[in-house]
Design a binder for these strands. Sequence first.
RNA 1: GUGGAUAUAGCCCAGUUGGUUAGAGCGCCAGGUUGUGGCCCUGGAGGCCGUGGGUUCGAGUCCCACUAUUCACCCCA
Length: 439
Amino acid sequence: MNGNIVAPSILPGFMELLPADQMLFNKMLDTIRFTYEKYGFIPIDTPMIEKSEILLAKSGGETEKQVYRFSKGDNDLSLRFDLTVPLARYVAQHYNELTFPFRRYHIGKVFRGERPQKGRFREFYQCDIDIVGSESLSVINDAEILSVIYSTFKALGFQSFTIRINNRKILNGFFSWLGVENKTEVLRTIDKMEKIGEQNTARELEALGLSAGVAQEIIRLTKIKGKGDEIVESLKGMKVENEEFSTGLEELSQVCSYIGYFGIPEDNFSVDLTIARGLDYYTGTVYETVLNDYPSIGSVCSGGRYDNLAQNYTNKKLPGVGISIGLTRLFYQLREAKIVEPYGRSTPTKLLVIPMPDAMNYCLDISTRARENGIPTEVYFNEGRMGKKLAYADKLGIPFVVVVGEDEIKTGLFKLKNMKTGEQETLSLEEIIEKLKLV
RNA sequence: GUGGAUAUAGCCCAGUUGGUUAGAGCGCCAGGUUGUGGCCCUGGAGGCCGUGGGUUCGAGUCCCACUAUUCACCCCA
């Protein structure tokens, strides 16, 4: 017994995967990156640690409590809690070197010191895209973001999902028209409506100081259903006299009219007036995406339009629109619900070369040739029984094995073993390479 | 920050109304001699029963505290 051994464990709220799952996770991440680049988004990477004064410049109470903050020497430092604030700093700092509209994507870990919970992490990956304009940014971008979300989830293999959108200006304008004071709290309550139900929403609205009549008016607005255009028409018919409301309605109307041209099927899109989003910097279009067969997972991708991204770091007016996929949570939920499962591979290796005595040098040469042709290959180095060597390939899910001994070297013909079927095929090295290239 | 639940092997769990050396399955390691894995058989390692106190002749089992984990609320990806 060794008393020096420390129980190996990680902090709660931090996700760590075993090889098969990690392969799966990375595949999803690659899919997302590939799709983002297909739309011409530019990759950036920023430090995980920022100066606290930068990160907390806006500091809306809640976020400040969740920030991992520490000091090193005289420096007051913080771990980034999202990728949007670093983007704001980045754009403000490099404004003169960037070309606008700036379309960037950023995939990286962020940190939030909150109480861990199911599907809740303190360290997680966000996959963000944002389009940042200088001074102005066309509302077509709002529609294009929808298209990116659609393509991404399609590429991830989902069929039945709905991207729901709303426009904050419509809600805020409507609230103003009704004379509501504390609009932010009302927004949050509306956002929860799907979860807590209509009655509780009414109760909460009244608890916020609204009259029963006003609460009902708001609920009545959010219950307007239909296709995008139909909702727009219904809203127009309400004769709400408020400029912000009208602007929002016009924006929503435009987004709806563009989505068809972006090739988004009607089934994957809906206008939902209860979508509000909690974050207070959203000022226009807001997005939420749900998997129709698994509503309990909640939103798997959300974001919105903001008027002024970097007001804390520059005087330039930088409007933008963007979304974020919380990949860690998404992956966790998908695994939990068995919507995705590892496909039996826990290594990228496609070919294992097993040398018999005195064949090592030859095997190393084979592996080099295979790798030069893009085939992930490894050579089994340990001495031992054949059974153990094959079991290694079996356990890692390596699909092909070739055993190389005296005969093979002499004839230049190898038996390529398919580990799944157990069949062996006699082929030359060139034939093996050609075959595996296609796998 | 508020409230609830749980704690036995690496993992999922048994363990009687308190009673002797704490169990199974999965996984792991080794073997069932030679250049062929999955199945099967045999053997092995691995637990101070979360920690500390109490009740008792006797505690994995009952009581208390602490700690850890976990779920929900708030908020969010």
